[in-house]
Amino acid sequence: MSFDVESHSSDTVIVHMGEALDFRNADEFKDTFQDHVEDGVRNFILDFSDTEVLDSTGLGSIFSLYREISPEDGKVAFADVSRPVQVVVQLTRTYKVFRQFPSVQAAKEALA
């Protein structure tokens, strides 16, 4: 499964996370964001509207993205977070690190 990435501006993309981000596709997610970081993208809006599974390895790959872009004022935003993903976010308290928005549009406006 590949990740569907939509460009919003020169430094912001929306990544549609699909059905799952887990240990089976976490490396693919890292390859995907790496390509965009190298192209100058600093803000990543992660659309979790269709996501049924986020596991510890998947979350770890998002931390990896955050560690890479945060020194350059990059941001990772969670948008339209599904209930299964919300459980993991609450459990791990990652809402302290990643801003959440009710929709991709709201995230776009906040990061503009």
Partner: peptide
């Protein structure tokens, strides 16, 4: 902080 690995058993324990 923000580890890439090693969270699985912690999540299991917390749940």
């Amino acid at each position: 902080d923000l580890p890439e690995r090693g969270m699985g058993l912690r999540i299991i324990n917390a749940c």
